[in-house]
Amino acid sequence: MDIESRIERAHTWHVAGRSRAALDSLRQLVRDVPQSTRARLALAELYRDLGHAEQAGRWSALTPEWATDRERRAFAVFLQQWSVDPYRVLLLPRYEKLPRLPQPPRRPSVNRRLASSIDTQHAAMVGPEWVRQPALGLWVAGWAVVSMAFVVLVVMMLTAWAIASRDAAESALARDVGLAITSVGVLVGAALLLPSELLARNWPQVCTLIFISVGSGFAFVALGLPALFSGA
């Protein structure tokens, strides 16, 4: 079977919902004909369609003008994070000349680091795009909620410390409110993070989130914090 026929077969599988089989087929095609730019771009295009920017940048490395800035950046971050043999990553024989690989900035900005984290999380997730995109949005929202919860805790604890000498009751109330908001925030944040980690099949992280959720709920009840919301 020639290259075009194998690419067409993989495309048919992808359209039919058999994306994993299509990826396996195209990866094998690249192994069989590593010099074929057509085979590499077909694999890169499939990864692009699935939302894997890192892999799209990887398999289009022989023709970098084909890739988007986001894909080249995601692949550069992959090369930076993992000490890997570029010949092995690109499935190139040793006698082939390596292409010019993308280089990440030495000191990425906060925005670039955040974009890199989101790209990495998205690349690790499995499933159709209409499921992965909302899960990724929840993942970002989850970290935002957790961060804000701890900011509130620090502010309320500082407030409690500042007024402790004047009004012990108000100080205790400020502390309890801070603990209540933080525990609820952590619980909500963990729930928002969970779908993305499940799709990424990151089981240690899933177990950690479940443990944190149970611990936050237990602490919330054990400290008598529900009374703050019931008005008791």
Rank of each mutant, 00 (worst) to 15 (best):
I3G: 10
E4P: 09
S5D: 05
S5I: 04
R6P: 11
E8C: 00
E8D: 05
V15Q: 13
L26C: 04
R27V: 09
Q28A: 01
Q28V: 01
L41I: 15
Y47A: 01
R48Q: 13
A53R: 09
A56T: 03
A56V: 00
G57I: 01
W59Y: 02
W59C: 00
E65S: 13
W66S: 04
D69R: 08
A74G: 06
F75E: 02
A76D: 10
V77R: 13
L79G: 04
Q80P: 00
Y87V: 07
R88T: 09
L92V: 03
P93H: 01
Y95F: 06
L98H: 08
P99T: 03
R106H: 07
R106Q: 14
P108K: 06
N111H: 11
N111A: 11
N111I: 11
A115L: 15
S117I: 06
A123P: 14
M125S: 08
P128G: 09
W130R: 14
Q133R: 15
G137T: 01
G137F: 00
L138Q: 15
A141P: 06
A141W: 08
A141E: 02
S147R: 11
F150P: 00
F150K: 09
V151M: 08
V152N: 10
L153H: 11
V155C: 10
M156I: 01
M157S: 00
L158I: 10
L158W: 07
A160Q: 12
A162Y: 12
A164P: 01
A164T: 10
R166S: 06
G178I: 14
G178A: 03
I181K: 06
G185T: 09
G189W: 03
A190L: 07
S196W: 03
S196M: 08
L198V: 14
N202K: 10
Q205V: 13
Q205S: 10
T208N: 12
L209N: 14
L225T: 13
P226E: 04
A227I: 07
